[in-house]
Design a protein around this nucleic acid. Structure first.
Lengths: 217, 217
DNA sequence: AAAGAAAGTTCGGTCACCCTAAATCGAAAA
DNA sequence: TTTTCGATTTAGGGTGACCGAACTTTCTTT
């Protein structure tokens, strides 16, 4: 249906749109590692396919159709990550790169089978929600660790904006989905938090890290 | 390393070379569904990469390097087919198309893991040998069913030149790898064979079918 | 051996996707 | 309000992978 390049633009635009209200050509360009003029022309192309609303000098917006297509690609990505971890024994920090490629496989049977074998999971191994077959994605009512108060005890349910470096960092601190931790103190100067859990007595997490950890109480 | 297109040329040239002594531009062109001028120019490109020996108007030959690369792609294809059948529950006639895409995934860990989970198989679900990590492929001493004599009792060990139609045909006759059958008679006119086995008492197989079934005695 | 057919090559073109350099727009600062 | 500067688009190019048309080589047939 769509080319590999188109799928990557769609998916990335979708992800960026979830992170911030307005996504610019520049943002997309940086994230994809593709120069702005190329991004502009691809946006025009996707606009003719009714996948994005494009107006010169305006922020980029996906159409409903575009959102659905993008969500379906992300569905494939997250199902794949889940499968790699659950059924093949990969570590959660290894699977992103492989899933990045497998998400472009064209075979609904293949992904339906994964879904079935995994028992129709709702979250991927990083805790991000897996969109359903219609591209609907339901975020549970998670809050960011950075928004919690001193003394709170919370359970980590998801990790956002996953990069391999970040995942390695979490592993090195033995932090994983499902971990319960207590907030000992919050440093007013840089908003870093000192937390205790299971295996660590006083671990300091920077604000950047706290922004990326979703928790429930 | 190589582009998707290059990989497809290599793989196809390798397969055709196993079927017949000399492979022409025309053969490759037909098999790939790509016009001859395009094939010619790709051959020149692959020649500069030392993957094929190319001389104008001469048959096409892979270099040793080219053979190895091709075998490694076929390894990925066949491992994938095996995995899809054994670990995901697909039918053997469904897996070719999916494997056709997954064979291009770039991740040695991914295929190493498949190999491990499958217990380092030697044959794919169609009975074709899986090249090893160094691109070495060992064909057992199979013979074609079409080369057997009246009265022989043989076991089917592999299927060559698999197409979905052919696999469906075999399924419809309940013919599968491992099946033992006896040759009742051979029709001299068209070299078709009448065979008996397990569930069928007198099944007629055309020469085309018999050419594609590998057996051991 | 000459003619005709088939196979292979050469020679422009096209399309997708990427680039740099230069022009233009728009928002924030002077 | 004018300047300035970053963001954006336009213009022009490049490469990979494909094509058709026309030409050349090789094979086949007579």
């Amino acid at each position: 249906m769509h080319s590999l390049a188109e799928e990557n633009y769609l998916k990335t635009l979708f992800s960026l749109s979830n992170d911030k209200a307005e996504v610019n050509v520049n943002d997309l360009s940086k994230r994809l590692g593709i120069k702005m003029p190329t991004v502009t022309s691809m946006m025009k192309k996707l606009a003719t396919k009714k996948l994005v609303h494009y107006e010169s000098y305006k922020p980029l917006r996906l159409t409903e159709k575009g959102k659905k297509e993008a969500a379906l690609i992300i569905r494939k990505h997250r199902l794949t990550e889940m499968y790699l971890v659950e059924k093949m024994g990969f570590g959660w920090e290894q699977v992103h790169e492989i899933a990045e490629q497998i998400e472009h496989i064209q075979s609904s049977e293949f992904f339906a089978k994964m879904d079935e074998l995994l028992g129709y999971p709702k979250l991927d191994p990083h805790g991000s929600p897996i969109p359903d077959k219609n591209g609907k994605m339901v975020w549970s009512a998670y809050s960011k660790l950075s928004e919690c108060k001193k003394g709170d005890t919370v359970k980590i349910t998801a990790v956002i904006n996953t990069s391999e470096e970040f995942l390695k960092f979490l592993n090195s601190r033995e932090i994983h989905i499902g971990l319960k931790l207590k907030i000992k103190s919050i440093e007013p100067f840089d908003n870093s938090m000192v937390v205790t859990y299971d295996k660590r007595n006083a671990e300091t997490l920077s604000q950047i890290v706290c922004e990326r950890l979703l928790v429930e109480k």
